[in-house]
Amino acid sequence: MKLTEGFLEGVAAAAVDEGLVDAYYATVATALGKLLVIETPQGVCRIGFEEEDPDALLANVALRVGPRIVRAKGATSEARDALEAYLSGAQNALDLPVDLALAPSTFGRSVLAGLAAVPRGTVTTYASLASSIGRPGAARAVGTALGRNPVPIVIPCHRVVPGGGGVGGYAGGAARKELLLRLEGYPQGPTPSRGS
């Protein structure tokens, strides 16, 4: 005897409606591959690429946010649809509430907050981002903090590139970073102006 998908979705929806959950998740197929989207009632707290182990991602959310985690397609549909539309090019804006519960430090949060000033279609450098948050010289630490961005794509850490040229590293791999920059209309072969 097996529980059907429909039954499980019903249980999950009831749990979300009754406020019994710390987080809920589902996957979505996009131009960047299958993404795992994990949300709290405050917003998206984690996006995982398909190479990342979903069990590890969920276990970390259980540890940091709480263990009452359910798989819910309905509750995550808004975020999943928005990601799918943005990554297919159907939408130019990706305005989703985020929950930075998994951001590792105050510094990390300020780095991620600094990305709000880097609009779609533009890039900045690790060094300029460091300066813009009042920490000139902390370019390396900025790079580390960006690499731990729990909500890639929505928080656009892909718009930060090395001053020396190239796209630099990305948690989802350089190919995905290039694809994102191209999608956002950034000219081929990013060569950002320094100190902009």
């Binding site: 991602l57 969920l58 259980a62 540890l63 009452r68 998994l102």
Partner: peptide, 18 residues
């Protein structure tokens, strides 16, 4: 180092859905 490796500490309650 992913944030998962960074923050994992000890045995704890698994995600309910598992």
């Amino acid at each position: 180092v992913t944030i998962e490796q960074k923050t994992r500490k000890k045995a704890q309650l698994p995600p309910f859905w598992s």
